[in-house]
């Protein structure tokens, strides 16, 4: 068992270290054929994809005997509900060549269950915003509604030198954004557009306890993605579902979340979170989207769970 684990770890390390753009050509042993040639994006992409998905996945199934074994007490069960403000910018060339930006409201519901060093999480995020063109054009406007659901499995890796704790895992996320577009016209010309997808990728979390609570930073990115981006407006009978596999080069996306939990020692904690999302989809009609949200809420812990 230990030997097999070591072999997997060695292979993954090679995949990560050898297959860097700009490095001399090196064969990646995890692949059956072909090489990670210098300047060949597909080789780099495939190796990165494989390694970054496989590494956290392996941590979930293998016994992490090589890392610190301290219990991550602050990972207790709990349901967190928070609401706040949302700032969104969007440039979707299916809709308009203009960039739109605006503000709205955000809602975040998250649930976490921990057993030992393993944590499972599920969550829902929703938001709505009214957007206007960034170049101050008169007339056109967008109403944006977006929702996403996330599922994550994480494994604690132990403590860093600064007293914080690291965890790695995988996250699957589904998202959908519906944009209602109102044209700059006296006629009631409105249309709706959809951008949706499913992504799977790694998630890293660092958190540290302080006298007043806990600060956590989470970063995730989707590496394997299926995208549903109908070619035009969806209110004319166009089929809504047309999922296509998108390479990591075609769909670049990431999310960073900073969460402060002010521990009360009771079942109800105050939670403040800041989220930054970025998405760029390279297609015939590219999409770029940036979102920031700041939310305040509470975390409710069941009786008998950790702090």
């Amino acid at each position: 068992m230990m030997l097999a684990r070591r072999r997997v770890a060695t292979a993954l390390q090679r995949a990560l270290s050898d297959c860097q753009p700009g490095r001399p050509t090196t064969r990646v042993r995890l692949r059956e054929s072909g090489s990670c040639e210098r300047g060949t994006p597909s080789g780099w992409t495939r190796a990165r994809l494989l390694s970054l998905v496989a590494l956290p996945a392996s941590l979930l199934v293998l016994d992490p005997g090589a890392v610190g074994a301290q219990e991550l007490r602050s990972w207790g069960h709990g349901l967190a509900v928070s609401a706040g403000v949302l700032r969104v910018g969007q440039a979707d060339e299916t809709i308009s060549p203009l960039h739109f930006v605006g503000s709205g409201v955000a809602l975040d519901v998250g649930w976490r269950r921990t057993r030992g060093r393993t944590s499972l999480e599920a969550g829902f995020e929703g938001g709505a915003a009214i957007l206007s063109p960034t170049d101050d054009s008169d007339g056109p406007g967008e109403r944006l509604a977006r929702a996403s659901a996330r599922f994550a499995g994480m494994r604690g890796l132990g403590h860093a030198r600064d007293g914080g704790a690291f965890a790695l895992g995988v996250t699957a996320r589904t998202f959908a954004t519906v944009t209602g577009y109102r044209a700059a016209s006296s006629l009631p010309m409105q249309s709706a557009y959809l951008f949706a997808g499913v992504t799977l990728g790694p998630l890293a979390r660092w958190h540290a306890a302080t006298p007043a609570g806990e600060l956590a930073v989470e970063m995730s990115t989707g590496l394997v993605s299926w995208v549903d981006h109908p070619y035009g407006s969806i209110d004319r009978g166009r089929p809504l579902l047309d999922f296509r596999l998108a390479s990591p080069a075609a769909l670049r996306n990431g999310s960073t979340r900073v969460v402060w939990t002010a521990a009360s020692g009771r079942r109800l904690d105050l939670v403040a979170s800041y989220r930054f999302d970025y998405l760029a989809y390279r297609d015939v009609q590219p999409v770029r989207s940036v979102g920031q949200s700041l939310s305040l809420g509470v975390r409710i812990r069941p009786r008998g769970s950790g702090t």
Partner: peptide, 8 residues
């Protein structure tokens, strides 16, 4: 947010 969307 706007600046991160790229050039107009």
């Amino acid at each position: 947010t706007d600046r991160m969307l790229g050039p107009h």
